[in-house]
Design a protein around this nucleic acid. Sequence first.
RNA 1: GCUCGGGUGGCGAAAUUGGUAAACGCAAGGGACUUAAAAUCCCUCGGGGGCAACCCCUUGCAGGUUCGAUUCCUGCCCCGAGCACCA
Length: 805
Amino acid sequence: MRDVPSYDPGSIEAKWQTHWAEHHTNEPDLDRAPRPFYNLMMFPYPSAEGLHVGNMFAFTGADIYGRFKRLQGYDVFEPMGFDAFGIHSENYALQRGINPAQLIPQNITTFRRQLRRVGGMFDWRHELSTTDASYYKWTQWLFVQLFKAGLAYKKRAAVNWCPTDKTVLANEQVIDGLCERCRTPVEQRFLDQWFFRITNYAERLLQNQEKLDWSSSTVLLQRNWIGRSEGAELIFETPSGKRITVFTTRPDTVFGATYLVLAPEHPLVDELTAVEQRAAVKGYQREVQSKDVVARRVGDKTKTGVFIGSYARNPATGEAIPIWIADYVLMEYGTGAIMAVPAHDKRDFEFATQFKLPIRQVVETAENEPLPTVTEDGTLMNSGAFDGVSCSDGARKIVDWLAERKLATARVQYRLHDWCISRQRYWGPPIPIIYCDSCGVVPVPEKDLPVELPLIDDFRPDDTGVSPLARHEEWYFVKCPQCGGQGRRETDVSDTFLDSAWYHLRYPSTEFTDRPFDKARTEKWLPVTSYIGGNEHAVLHLLYARFICMVLADLGHLKFDTPYPKFRAHGLIVKDGAKMSKSRGNVVVPDTYIKQWGADTFRMYLMFLGPFQEGGDFRDEGIVGIRRFLEKVWWAVQQSALKGGEGAAKGGNALMQKLHFTIRKVTTDTESLHYNTAIASLMEYVNEMREQGAGSRELLEPLVIMLAPYAPHIAEELWEVLGHTGSVFSARWPSYDEKLAASGDVEIAVQINGKLRSRLVVPRGMEEKDVMSRVLADEAVKKFVDGQKVKKVIFVQDRLVNLVV
RNA sequence: GCUCGGGUGGCGAAAUUGGUAAACGCAAGGGACUUAAAAUCCCUCGGGGGCAACCCCUUGCAGGUUCGAUUCCUGCCCCGAGCACCA
């Protein structure tokens, strides 16, 4: 008998990775594929540390799904690219003192090697990097389209400024008042910034969610981020005839509004301030402005404020109520002014208590319940004609009543702000705008794109708030494309999230240099069939990508307005309870594991760790279990091949039943990303086969195919051992016979009064009367029933019988 | 504070619409093989009682609904995530 070769993952993995590359196994025909399936995963930013275990977990899970779909007969396009622009890459380059344009390609090389080594089914023909001029040319084109559509505008705005990174940060990049990247407290600065009018799409972004087949957690995060509030604008008039508009979600409580509060920056403050209060008001405004964003947003929330010395009329009661300014009212939300109802709002209550302002209860409360009460299902009181009306009815009726005097309008307010896309940095696509003294703001003509990012030595940002690009005159000065006069380039670059907001459109069309995305390719492959990624991008990337897609659809460039109809959020792999990061020093590098155990074992182990959509703490204790399992499969197939593929067909029917049961389980579990339980049932199947000493071709071939998405290299090798030529991925996923899968014997529970007293093995699907005759003959049952009358019988087929006595 | 997840053996975890709690794997203990070790194979493995057949208890805590609750309801406790003076 010849020797069976031992399982050597290193050599077979290298063999098949080479095979795939040489035979173009992972490259579907993008123009003719009959069943296109676009399997997308979130492209990484190529950090110097390389991919960590968390990245591998995400990519492996998505890759398994793609390979599974491939085996089901789809033409799976699984591209990969690099999100290489942005602050993360740039900071590393700054630290090394080397231009990121030189550094990034090295990192990409490492990433590419790791991604191949782990066995991803990537179509490398369509690799992209957002930093290639051939890519960002179209990112700039995108900006121009938004500009022309009036969706890009510039305004001077209080922005988040990071004094360490010396750049403006998007709201999303500020965590607890600190810079997401370097944890420095963020300051307030006033700079001219480019914004995209995503707020125009707030309602549509919300409504459209209903069309999405997404993880519910992601949908929810996005909904909260958009933050829709229904309410009304109410007008409070001053004796001088000025009208102060406030936004409230509780117009029903207007009778309880005992004072007004304006944001310190509110435009009406100056003219409404009484002479004698002027000094105090100015002082307070200065105090607020000098506070940095941290102090105002997350600092201690003790209420401060100043009475401005004038009054306005409550539109419901007609009373004159005092006007205050306080920094707990924010200029950027609502109208920058509120009516304060201290009896029914916590913040107003706190403020009123502190400054001894009147508190008037207008919603009935339960006995002894202290104010403030914020319930929306109360009944109104002290509210004139509206006494006794429920809050919800009252809100509507009071708005109608005030609207007759043009003092109220129903209104919807969103928390979402416009997207600030400019960055005063070097490492990004220059915003394609030219300033001309005679023509004003002129977009760079599309024929002149890309505006290339020059390779410069001093790319270090400084604290002027102007990009380093402004220091390069030969780049900075340019002819105005309209009048030919002296113009100047915009020196800001755009946010990385603009790069990633459209990358899925580029992948299938990477070879076209004269268009961002080819019409035919796009129609064939998009929208993306399946998208799998991290929930950390629920409100950034995933929202921006939806917005950009809607804009492109509205402008006639796309026929769909939803880029990712199906999205699944995977869990996060942490280490010792914390997210992996270089600064925490808890990064687990996958390479050593892959070297020691092989990519197949490592992939499967990551998926066996727990539910893919939940993630968890990384540890390596159980990895040997997966290796043992693969060894068992290896030997079973090798032994069978020795015997001419016949092997022992012992176990007969029971094993065939188990096989079909397993196919059903693995199919549904893989489809629903329950990879851990799919692997467990493959293990059960292999264990049973070994117990029976069986190993025929008809039992093993389906096993090898089911194993292929999880452990593609060993599956390829064993497929070859079984005598096939060509890739296992040309095979078809095994089908199962529902009847066979659901046949065989089951053990059912026999309970007396809900307590387990006996078990019976019966054929699956046995009817109640047949089961009962066996139950009543059972010794344990006789003993417990003991002549008592059976009052009730509960029968659940294939599960249990419960006798109530 | 608000909104979501989650809490099950020594560990990672399983458990269709409420229906045998702990599948699968790791670790541990015992045994076989071996001069020995590794590898491999077999057995045990939630807690307690019993010689045994068996019995009692057990899914964060306290109640409730039900023939029956890890699953549903109410109130708490703890952990994680997101938002956070958003009117």
